[in-house]
Simulated assay, not measured.
Amino acid sequence: MQTLKHDWTTEEITAIYNKPFLDLVYEAASIHRENADYNEVQISSLISIKTGGCAEDCSYCPQAARYHTDVDVQALMKVDQVVDAAKTAKAGGASRLCMGAAWREVRDNRDFDRVIDMVKAVNELDMEVCCTLGMLTENQAQRLADAGLYAYNHNLDTSEEDYKRIITTRTYDDRLNTIKNVRKAKLTVCSGGIVGLGETVADRVSMLQTLANMPKHPESVPINALVPVKGTPLENQPRIPIWEMVRMIATARIVMPKSVVRLSAGRNEMSTLEQAFCFMAGANSIFAGDKLLTTPNPAFVDDMAMFELLGLKTREAFKNGRPENTVKKEVLV
């Protein structure tokens, strides 16, 4: 069993990333088999609980208010709508529900109170509950934890060096501080990035180094392939070659051997064979459902057919045990 390492150098990760392709995949697959049930994949469902109108200027995102895209602004969903979506996702095989809101940051208002109610309600369904709501304070993270939240997603997107090219409305330190606040609340961390933004290999290595050298590796590491959206600054970016996605997943698996590596955005453009390479390289989670926030995603039925073809099985919720904050309290009468 590989010992977890938190002092990776740029040279070490670069050497891993640049290994001959088949050697890299073999090493990643071997490490994956040592640290997890290699043919078990977690299915997560991601829903947009508040869509569009975001004040940020993330160059890849169709939900930024300043860009002219086909995304319509929609108000925060009702709690019962979210519960219905969660039940549908669970029936389709999902063991985790992630709720995303197009906010720059969490504000202490009635909308946040409603999100707290959403977390409590979905937690009652015995699903891992994840939120991605933008920046949040330590106190807000604690409120989410007290409500039963299992994970908080806050992606780094790219390297610290490349960050200002992609986003100018917040800093890399803002991202890292939110992750620190999540850790203080004893929530699990979901944090990864996007490949295909026009970044260099050095940027990819740097991002993975930041994640792998955290005091505790993120429990979940999403690797997204950019889905260019008309109306955003990155609308003309070419599709990332599958080989580069596989290299990213394999490198993430090697440097963070116990983390769940999620094959996230961009799957809709991948064939079953291309996705199989990603699973072989160590990906052990996907987002399922016909939409990923605002971009197309394979339907549950298609993913189940792929699972059957590849001999994959779904991972149950709370595989590594329930955190204390998600345990249902017995009501004494």
Rank of each mutant, 00 (worst) to 15 (best):
L4K: 07
K5M: 03
D7M: 06
E12N: 01
E12M: 00
I13E: 06
I13A: 07
T14M: 10
A15H: 13
I16K: 04
I16Q: 06
Y17C: 10
N18M: 12
K19I: 01
D23Q: 12
E27K: 13
A29F: 02
A29L: 02
H32P: 03
H32E: 01
A36D: 01
D37H: 09
N39F: 11
I43D: 02
S45D: 04
L46V: 12
K50E: 14
G53Q: 09
G53A: 12
C54M: 14
Y60E: 04
P62R: 07
R66F: 00
T69V: 02
T69R: 03
D72K: 14
Q74Y: 06
Q81V: 00
V83R: 04
A94T: 13
C98K: 02
A101R: 01
A102V: 09
D108G: 03
D111L: 05
D113L: 08
D113T: 13
R114H: 07
V122W: 04
V122F: 09
N123Q: 15
E128I: 08
C130S: 14
E138A: 15
Q140P: 13
Q140F: 13
A141D: 06
Q142T: 14
A151I: 07
Y152A: 09
Y152L: 11
N153R: 06
N155S: 03
L156D: 03
D157I: 10
Y163S: 08
Y163W: 12
K164W: 00
K180R: 15
K180V: 06
R183L: 10
K184V: 03
C190H: 05
V195R: 09
G196W: 09
L197Q: 02
G198K: 10
V201M: 13
L211W: 08
N213E: 02
M214A: 05
P218L: 00
V221K: 00
V221Y: 00
I223V: 15
N224L: 03
N224A: 01
L226W: 01
P228I: 11
T232A: 09
T232D: 04
T232S: 04
N236L: 07
Q237D: 02
I240F: 00
M248E: 04
A250R: 07
R253V: 08
P257I: 07
R262N: 01
G266M: 03
T272E: 12
T272S: 13
E274W: 09
E274N: 08
F279H: 13
F279D: 07
K291W: 00
L293P: 04
T295K: 02
A299Y: 11
F300P: 13
M304P: 01
M304T: 05
A305E: 15
M306H: 11
G311E: 10
G311I: 05
P323F: 10
N325I: 08
N325L: 07
T326A: 10
K328T: 06
